[in-house]
Design a protein around this nucleic acid. Structure first.
Lengths: 349, 349
DNA sequence: ATGAAAGCGCTAACAC
DNA sequence: GTGTTAGCGCTTTCAT
C-alpha cells in the first residue's frame, strides 16, 4: 500500500522533489522554471532534463499563494449554448490566451441566485477579473456584491445599474429605431413588435427604440411582449391578424422570436414581404439562406467579447497606476442593418 | 500611500484577519466556513457576522495547497463558438455544477500545438479532471502527455489512439451507413459523399460508413473530400454534374458542408429532393425550417457532454477504490436519423 | 469548544 | 551562481 514504485495517478512531482533529484536547491529550480536567468548553463540544462523526465509542472496554486495572479478570468453568461454568448466566449478566450490566462465560463439561465452564486464561486477561486452578462441588471444585491469584489469587473451586453462597473454593449435603442424607420421607409404603417423577456436590459432598450420610431412617425404601437415559444408566437400572430386592422410588418426583438415568427408566417401561408415585412434583431447563420432571406440587425458579437476582455485586462494590468472603477466607462458598439429580402428590399441573396 | 482607509480593490481579507476581528482562533473560523460543526452557537453567529461584514471568501488556492481538489475541470475543444461543442460545454457545466466545480474551457482550432499547450496549462492549474476533443487523435506526443497526467482524462467525440483513455463518442460509422442505406431505399443509386477535414476521427468513421453501405449495395463510390467553404462546395457539385453520370443524391458529412451544399443547390436551381436527395450529418436549428426541410443524422450532443462529464467525476471520486485508466472504456452513443423532406420522404414539416 | 503550530508548493530576500 | 529560509492562506492534528 505504501509502495514507492512509479505508480501513475499519484500526486504530481513538486519543485523540491525536482531540486533533490537534480541535486540543486529549490531556488535554482524556481529560477529555471521562470526563465532560467542567472543560472549556470550546465545547471540549467541538467535541471531542465530532470524536469522533463519527471514530467514536472509548476503548481499554480502555490504561486497564487505567493501573491501571483491566478491567470484565470471568469465569464458569467446566461447560457453557453447560445450562439451570441458562445461567440463572446470564443473571443474572450482568444484575448485571455494572449495574456497567458485561462477562461472559466459559467452559465446562469438569467437566474439571480445563480448569478450571485457564480460570482462568489469565482471570487473564491480568485480569478484575476470577471465579466458578466447579468439578466438582472438592476438587482441591488448583485451590484453590491460586484462592487465589493477586489478584482476588476466588466459588464457585457447589459450594464449593471447603480454601479460604476464599466460595460461593453451594443446600442440597442438606436439599432431598433433604425430598423423600424427602415420599415416605415418601405411604406409600412402598421408595424408590430414581438418579443418576450422584457425584464432584460437589451429587450427594454429595443422596445424603447421601437416606440420612439413609431411615435415620431405618428403610427400606432402594436407591441406584444408575450412571445417565447413557437406556440405563443402562433397565438400572437393569429391575434394580430384577427384584429380590425392587421399589421403589414413585424419587428422581432430576438433571434428565436424571429425564427418562430418566420415559421408561423410560413405555416399560415402569409407572403413575406408582400403581405408582411419582417425584420429581426440579431443575425443568425441561415438568415440569408431562408426564402425569403431575412433582414436583420447584426450585432458585433465578436467585438463585444473581445473589447470587454481587452478592457478587463487593461484594468487588471494598469491597476497600479490608475484607481479602478472611478469613472464609469460605457462602450457602446454599433449595430449594422443587413438588408435582405424579408423587409421588402430587392437585393440579391 | 499607506492609508489604511477602506480602499477597494485591495487584497481580499484572509481567514486570520477574520479570526482577529472576531477575537477567535483561525481554527474556529476554519470550522465555521466548513460547516460550523463543533462550534459554540454564539461563536458561530459572531464569526458569521464578521465574515459577512468583511466580505470574506475563502481562498481556494490555499485550500488546494493543503491537498484539496481545485474544484475545477478542464474542457479542451476545437472551438467554443461551434454549436456542437458549445452544447457539450453547456452540459459539462451543468454536471460540474452539481459537483460544486467550475468549468475551464479552452479552444484549440484542432491545432496540435494548442492542444498540448492547453493540456499543460490546465495541468499546471491542477484541474481535477480533463476532457478533450482532440483533432489529432493519433498524435503520439498528445497521447503520451495525457497518459502521464496525474488526473483523470476523458476523450470526447473523438477517442485518443494508442491510449487507455476512456472516450464518449457517437457511432459515426453505423450512423453514416444508416443514412446511405436510407438513400438507397429511396432508389438512389449514384450517391455522392461531400466533406472536408478527413484527418478527423469522426469524418474518417463517417467515410468508412459511407463506403461500407455503398459497397454492400454494389454502387459506385463518389467521394469528394475537398469541400470546406462555399466556393469549394460549388466547384465540387458543378464537377459532379459535369461528369457523364451525375449523382442523384448527396450525403454531406458535416454541418457546414450540408448548408453550403443546400445553398449551392438552391443557387443552381437544382430541385431537392426531385433531382437530388440530400442527407446531412449533424442536425442544426433551422434544418426543419428550410424548404425543403433537411433530413439529418442527429447526434445526442447534450448526452455526449453530460455522459463524459459524469464519467469524469466518477473516476475522480472513485479513484481511491479503483485504479484509473486500467480498462479502456468506450461509450458509444446512438445517432438518430431525422426524416424530413430533402431525402425524398413525404413527411409533414 | 477552542487554539497553537506545522506544513502544503512555491518565490524572494538574503547570505555565501 | 547557488542555497537557506520565511511565509503566502488555509486545514489539521494535538493539546488544553
Amino acid at each position: 500500500m505504501r509502495s514507492k514504485s512509479i505508480m501513475k495517478k499519484n500526486s504530481p512531482p513538486t519543485l523540491s522533489q525536482v531540486a533533490r533529484a537534480a541535486g540543486v536547491g529549490t531556488t535554482t529550480v524556481s529560477r529555471v522554471i521562470n526563465g532560467g536567468d542567472c543560472v549556470n548553463p550546465k545547471t540549467l540544462a541538467k535541471v531542465r532534463r530532470v524536469i522533463e523526465s519527471m514530467g514536472y509542472l509548476p503548481n499554480q496554486a502555490a504561486r497564487v499563494l505567493k501573491g501571483d495572479r491566478t491567470k484565470t478570468i471568469g465569464l458569467i453568461i446566461p447560457s453557453i449554448a447560445d450562439p451570441f454568448f458562445s461567440s463572446c466566449a470564443e473571443a474572450a478566450h482568444a484575448v485571455a490566451r494572449t495574456h497567458d490566462s485561462l477562461l472559466i465560463v459559467t452559465a446562469t439561465q438569467n437566474d439571480l441566485k445563480n448569478e450571485i452564486e457564480n460570482v462568489n464561486m469565482l471570487a473564491r477561486h480568485r480569478v484575476d477579473g470577471l465579466m458578466i452578462a447579468a439578466g438582472n441588471s438592476r438587482s441591488k444585491s448583485l451590484s453590491q456584491l460586484l462592487m465589493r469584489l477586489s478584482m476588476p469587473v466588466v459588464a457585457i451586453d447589459r450594464p449593471i445599474s447603480n454601479s460604476n462597473i464599466p460595460a461593453v454593449i451594443t446600442d440597442n435603442f438606436v439599432a431598433a429605431k433604425l430598423a423600424v424607420q427602415h420599415l416605415i421607409e418601405h411604406g409600412r404603417t402598421r408595424i408590430a413588435c414581438l418579443t418576450g423577456e422584457e425584464e432584460l436590459f437589451t429587450i427594454r432598450e429595443r422596445i424603447r427604440g421601437y416606440r420612439a420610431a413609431i411615435k415620431s412617425a405618428g403610427l400606432p404601437p402594436l407591441l406584444d411582449t408575450s412571445v417565447s415559444e413557437f406556440d405563443s408566437a402562433m397565438r400572437s400572430i393569429q391575434r394580430l391578424f384577427a384584429s380590425d386592422c392587421p399589421p403589414d410588418a413585424i419587428f422581432t426583438l430576438k433571434n428565436s422570436t424571429t425564427i418562430y415568427t418566420f415559421e408561423v408566417l410560413q405555416e399560415l401561408g402569409i407572403a413575406v414581404p408582400e403581405s408582411i415585412a419582417l425584420v429581426g434583431f440579431d443575425d443568425f447563420e441561415l438568415a440569408s439562406t431562408l426564402r425569403p432571406s431575412i433582414t436583420v440587425l447584426q450585432q458585433p458579437v465578436q467585438d463585444i467579447g473581445r473589447t470587454a476582455t481587452e478592457l478587463l485586462f487593461e484594468r487588471l494590468l494598469g491597476s497600479a497606476e490608475r484607481p479602478l472603477n472611478t469613472v464609469r466607462q460605457l462602450k457602446s458598439l454599433d449595430t449594422h442593418l443587413i438588408l435582405r429580402r424579408s423587409c421588402g428590399c430587392r437585393v440579391a441573396d
